[in-house]
Amino acid sequence: MFSGVKSSTKTLIVLHFVLVVYSITGILGKIASTKDFFSFEFCAYYLGIIFLLGVYAIAWQQIIKRLPLTTAFANKAITVVWGIVWGFLFFGESINALKVAGALLVVAGVVVYARSDGASGQDAGDMSNE
């Protein structure tokens, strides 16, 4: 009975790790934009982006085998929060009240959707057992 919950929780944890990897491509892209076009550094950063996007694509396919697509896409919104974090840590961007409010709104939306999706999944599971 609880093995599905544990598996789903593990999949969500992996999903969020994969979304962190996906968000790192934004860092590499922003750094690459400061380099001379087609310089060695520029190409190295873009090869890094391509590599990470390849890892992300393969992992995404595995995740959507295990989670409903709507759940996976709803969680993808969390990359907005990672963008704010990476901007602050790597580029010295400020975090203001509007960014925090926006990030909280995104997180709240993901949580609300996940809870409603979980509740509807339990209802559907209960009906199929009757």
Rank of each mutant, 00 (worst) to 15 (best):
G54H: 06
A103G: 03
K65L: 10
G109L: 00
S39E: 06
Y56P: 09
F42R: 05
S128I: 15
L12I: 14
R66S: 06
F90G: 05
V18C: 06
R115L: 12
L47D: 10
T34N: 10
K99L: 00
E41K: 09
K6G: 07
S116F: 13
L69E: 15
Y22D: 15
A32H: 01
W86E: 11
A101L: 09
I13D: 14
G87E: 09
P68D: 03
A101R: 06
K6A: 06
L52N: 10
T9I: 15
Q122M: 12
V18H: 03
V85I: 07
G83A: 00
E93I: 00
I78W: 00
S128N: 14
I58E: 04
K65Y: 12
L47I: 04
L52F: 07
L53N: 13
V5A: 14
L53C: 10
V55F: 04
F90C: 08
G83V: 00
F51V: 14
K30L: 00
K76R: 08
I84W: 03
V18Y: 03
F17C: 06
V14M: 14
G26V: 12
V111D: 02
K30I: 02
A32G: 02
F17G: 07
R66A: 02
G87S: 03
A124V: 11
V81C: 02
V18K: 03
A114F: 14
G4N: 09
T71Y: 05
A77T: 10
L52C: 08
Y113N: 12
V81K: 04
G109Y: 00
I24L: 07
A124N: 12
Q62W: 09
G4R: 10
A72R: 01
